[in-house]
Amino acid sequence: MVNKIVDSINEAIGPISDGATVMCGGFGSSGIAFNLLDALLEQGARELTIIANNAGVGETGVAKLLREHRVAKVICSYPRSPGSIWFERRYEERAIDLELVPQGTLAERIRAAGAGLGGFYTPTGYGTELAKGKRTEVIDGVGYVFERPLAADVALLKASQGDRWGNLVYHTTARNFNPIMATAATTVIAEVSEIVELGALDPESVVTPGIFLDRVIEVDQVFV
């Protein structure tokens, strides 16, 4: 029997080794797996590479990992936000590396990894500093930059409902990066607001098919 549901947050986060690359779903404070990020902090892994759209605000989520010196590198599109004090502090101290990636390129690199592609040419960033050192090509008169796939060891997702096969649906704009990150990590873990019986989710409406998931845990929702 396939059963991806686990009962404790520690079992959900499982072993994550030092130096692991961790994808974190979310945009702003919407769609972030705050419970799993807290469990990651508790678990103690260090020298992490974090892939996320933002680099955390206040004293929550990725910001807490930055505060506790668990992060070696951040790969993201928009690290500086009102309240991103721990990112800014670590950046100023040069304690972390930053790989800044245009948001659409970040999404597509993740999608490419999950879809088994070796990369793609995008017009985004062509002729800018963010394309420095990258292969370029002019195709039908348009300049493109070659971008490589981006995979991770672990993805931490938030969804609204999940079942024991790992099928997921999301709530409003909390979907954001979660469905693509689900496809691009070796171990994919989702916290959901509600676990439902197998068959309760309409197959026409499943957003992330369970094949991508490893573990699902029901949590109380956290909003910041």
Partner: peptide, 16 residues
């Protein structure tokens, strides 16, 4: 060097 950059979706919107 000190104030971190932030690109978000601006480059994608600019070309698209």
């Amino acid at each position: 060097e000190i104030y971190p950059p932030a690109v978000g979706g601006a480059m994608d919107l600019a070309v698209g």
